[in-house]
Simulated assay, not measured.
Amino acid sequence: MLNLNIKNETSRLRAVILGTAVSNGPTPQVHEAYDPKSLEHILAGTYPVEEDMVNEMEAFNEVFKKYDVKVYRPEIIENYNQIFSRDIGFVIEDVFIKANILPDRERELEAIQYVIDQIDPAKVVRPPEEVHIEGGDVMPWNDHIFIGTYKGSDYKDYITARTNMQGVNYIKELFPNKIVKEFDLVKSKIEPRDNALHLDCCFQPIGTDKGIIYKSGFREEADYMYLVNLFGRENLFHIEREEMYNMNSNVFSIAPDVVVIEKNFTRLKKWLLEKGFTVEEVPYAEIAKQEGLLRCSTLPLIRD
Results as ranks from 00 to 15, higher is better:
Lys98Gln: 14
Asn8Cys: 00
Asn8Gln: 00
Leu2Gln: 03
Ile190Arg: 12
Asn61Glu: 10
Pro300Ile: 05
Asn235Gln: 07
Pro121Glu: 02
Asn55Trp: 07
Glu191Arg: 12
Gly136Phe: 08
Glu286Arg: 03
Ile179Pro: 04
Leu43Trp: 05
Ile42Val: 12
Leu43Pro: 07
Met53Pro: 00
Ser249Thr: 11
Glu129Trp: 10
Gln82Asn: 15
Ile239Ala: 05
Asn250Asp: 02
Cys202Ile: 10
Lys151His: 08
Val69Gln: 10
His238Ile: 09
Ala288Asp: 08
Asp194Val: 07
Glu243Asp: 13
Lys189Leu: 15
Glu51Phe: 04
Ile206Glu: 02
Asp94Thr: 08
Leu4Glu: 06
Ile171Thr: 03
Ile147Gln: 03
Ile213Gly: 05
Ser188Ile: 11
Ile302Lys: 10
Pro28Phe: 03
Leu268His: 08
Ile17Val: 14
Pro74Met: 02
Ile92Asp: 06
Thr266Ser: 15
Val49Ser: 09
Met165Lys: 14
Glu220Trp: 04
Cys296Trp: 05
Ser249Val: 00
Pro28Ile: 04
Tyr67Val: 07
Leu294Val: 08
Tyr72Pro: 11
Ile261Pro: 09
Pro121Tyr: 02
Phe90Glu: 04
Asn8Glu: 00
Leu18Ser: 02
Lys172Gln: 15
Asn100Thr: 06
Val71Gln: 15
Ile254Ala: 05
Ile302Cys: 02
Ile42Lys: 11
Arg86Gln: 15
Trp141Tyr: 04
Ser23Val: 03
Lys275Met: 13
Ile213Phe: 01
Gly135Arg: 03
Asp94Tyr: 07
Leu4Asn: 05
Ile101Ala: 15
Arg107Lys: 15
Asn235Cys: 09
Glu106Lys: 15
Phe175Asn: 00
Ser153Gln: 13
Ala44Cys: 01
Tyr47Leu: 03
Asp304Phe: 00
Ile159Trp: 13
Asn169Ile: 00
His238Tyr: 10
Pro140Gln: 01
Tyr224Val: 01
Ala15Glu: 09
Val251Asp: 07
Val30Asp: 14
Asn55Ala: 14
Leu273Ile: 13
Tyr72Gln: 01
Asn81Ser: 13
Asp120Arg: 07
Gln29Pro: 05
Leu174Ile: 11
Ile212Tyr: 01
Asn61Phe: 14
Ser38His: 09
Tyr284His: 14
Tyr214Cys: 12
Ala111Phe: 04
Ile302Glu: 04
Gly19Gln: 01
Met165Cys: 04
Asn264Ser: 14
Tyr224His: 09
Val168Trp: 04
Met57Val: 11
Phe218Tyr: 00
Asp200Tyr: 07
Trp271Arg: 12
Ala222Leu: 05
Glu234Tyr: 03
Lys275Val: 02
Leu2Phe: 14
Leu4Cys: 02
Asn264Ile: 14
Gln118Thr: 06
Ser23Cys: 12
Glu221Thr: 12
Cys202Arg: 06
Asp87Tyr: 10
Phe265His: 15
His132Trp: 13
